[in-house]
Design a protein around this nucleic acid. Structure first.
Lengths: 90, 90
DNA sequence: ATTGAATAATAATTCAAC
DNA sequence: GTTGAATTATTATTCAAT
């Protein structure tokens, strides 16, 4: 049950602004996942969710944004091109 | 005061496992920043800190890893180069 | 705009049950 | 190993003050 409940949690928080664990557990119950706040607390820890500020002083649960793959090495191509331009065009 | 306190908070959580806001405010006081849990709660929100699980069922505050600036657009240069090679070298 | 004391709201844990 | 009810612990907010 836990695995699919986790998936459902991610689905719910992507779709709605969920402000509390009580709110989330209520939504899960409505979706057919019998669960209480205690379990949701554990789920949130396992899923590494966190509360982030949204507008009007509210907070919502969100997944920690996964740092993007480092692409900075690709920038070197511009330096190469600039050297080429400096060398052959000026 | 807030700015340097924020810096000190980041310094502290990088160095120690801080489990609660009470603990953090106590440390700040010891470092010469007179502050209470209420303010630390606000600071944590502003700094986008979050509790993450560490070993032995504990949690500690940590900074959310900041997603790196999106550099993916630069990759296009490779596609351009490839087209150039296909066009003029083959 | 920032802060603290008090409080309300929320989340984590314990302990028992399965 | 997973879960809920009850509880404890922790955090967020209110409201007043600066």
């Amino acid at each position: 049950m836990k695995i699919s409940r986790h998936a459902k949690i991610l689905e719910i928080i992507a779709k709605y602004d969920v402000e509390t664990q009580e709110e989330l557990s209520a939504m899960l119950v409505k979706e057919g996942y019998p669960v209480t706040q205690a379990t949701v607390s554990r789920d949130i820890r396992e899923l590494k969710l966190t509360k982030v500020a949204v507008s009007s002083g509210r907070q919502k649960y969100a997944a920690i944004s996964h740092p993007q793959k480092d692409l900075s090495k690709y920038i070197r191509i511009f330096r190469v091109r600039w050297i080429w331009r400096r060398t052959f065009l000026s």
